[in-house]
Design a protein around this nucleic acid. Structure first.
Lengths: 235, 235
DNA sequence: TAGCATAGTTATCAAACGATAATGAATTGC
DNA sequence: GCAATTCATTATCGTTTGATAACTATGCTA
């Protein structure tokens, strides 16, 4: 029993909404990020189509295979949300290292601490793709190595070709400590201290003070910036 | 064209190996941990059976559903690999806090830093199960809260009902920093500093020194224990 | 407004999935 | 050594999956 062709009434929305190929394609990717971040990459193409209000085979007009769609999702998450400005910020010596790192991690975590980003990141990590090793390498080269360089500069230590493995690992501990706050909040949905930037600030305090003591360097890191939560670990 | 019933020759293995229910059940769980840690929980029951050298319907003699098998996998990973001795170790005040933490994290990471554990943990985390929030809560209550208590004791700070949120977050940063070393190694398979225990030791140095400076407490933490890698951050 | 290009649909396929029922063979108890 | 028990098999079902082919109808343009 099919409706005969009728003019769409005022309340009805048209049965078929023709979108421009560009627009439709972007919609597919946008909704795919939503779907895959919730269901994983095993999320069905039919459910994806349902979210778009279209039928499933339409997907294959825009992407040759589901795998290709997934690649576009990677791009949307991994590449498009990486701000090249972070690089220059981390190297901006007009700002002391302490507030510089605080600002960087505020911006960086503002970008990646979303349920979508975190889940796509872990899902793709578990797939063991080359892409993930590439991202980890990028974090190391563009963030951690830079942090070490800038710390050494401010501490008056000689520049070096590349950081010692132990230094890198230490930077990883800091970075992971901050990163995992997002995992707890958005993956495990565990209760976390809600003031993200305060948590980051304290972590930076401890890290910078710690390495300056452990390695005998001496960097003024706390000055006016650090303001630990009242009562924590103090008498 | 079926073979008529013959005595199995010396080289042939018997077509059907009858195992005791207990043994077979354990085998199912053991191989399921292998399979699901690689493929995720969408790993097929047919492939699981193939790994065991049996047919797929046999699974349903031992488990009412795949979901029940998965629950047994959780148990095998989450519960069976948690050593209650860690609790007492963390509270053993005959050992100073510094080597105590070093020993604890050596044992703890020896237990969980395997490809199987790490991947099952993340896969199940992404499924958003209650179990995971339970585990995270257990880590917090049995490890992190204890670390804070013991630190405060050694620093001569007054005991408190429960740690301040900021203290907990700080402990999380340490814990996550160490934990993520395992993620990098076993999930992303990125190159890491191979001496795990050295990495942990250094992280503990920085953490303990850091908090003692940031929060004005004064705990002798380095003494003879800390021995940072030569050259790292030092002149 | 006729016609054309194409966005979107319906119908369908083969493969893989978890699960069930009926059958066969190895072990155990007598 | 026979019968009973039960471990393990074969055969198969109903869904769901990614993907293809053929058809429909929308909206632009001549």
């Amino acid at each position: 029993m099919k409706k005969t062709t009728t003019l769409p009434s005022a309340t009805d929305e048209p049965k078929r909404r023709r979108l421009s190929p560009d627009e439709r394609r972007r919609e597919f990717i946008r909704k795919a990020v939503e779907l895959f971040s919730e269901e994983g990459f095993d999320g069905g193409t039919r459910e994806l189509a349902r979210k778009l209000g279209v039928t499933q085979p339409l997907l294959y007009r825009y992407f040759p295979s589901k795998e290709e769609l997934i690649n576009e999702v990677y791009r949307a998450v991994y590449i498009d949300r990486w701000d090249p400005g972070w690089d220059t910020l981390l190297g901006d010596r007009s700002l002391p290292i302490r507030p510089r790192l605080e600002k960087f991690y505020r911006l960086y975590t503002d970008a990646i601490f979303t349920r979508e980003w975190m889940r796509i990141y872990l899902f793709s990590g578990l797939k063991g793709l080359e892409l993930n090793r590439w991202y980890v390498a990028m974090v190391q080269d563009r963030i951690l190595v830079r942090i070490i360089e800038e710390y050494r500069f401010e501490a008056g230590l000689p520049a070096q070709e590349r950081p010692a493995p132990a230094e890198l690992e230490l930077a990883w501990v800091l970075h992971s400590g901050i990163f995992y706050y997002g995992v707890r909040k958005y993956i495990y949905e565990s209760p976390v201290h809600e003031d993200k930037d305060r948590v980051i600030a304290t972590a930076l305090d401890v890290f910078l003070e710690g390495i300056s003591r452990v390695f005998g360097t001496n960097v003024k890191v706390r000055a006016a910036y650090a303001r630990p939560s009242a009562g924590a670990f103090s008498r």
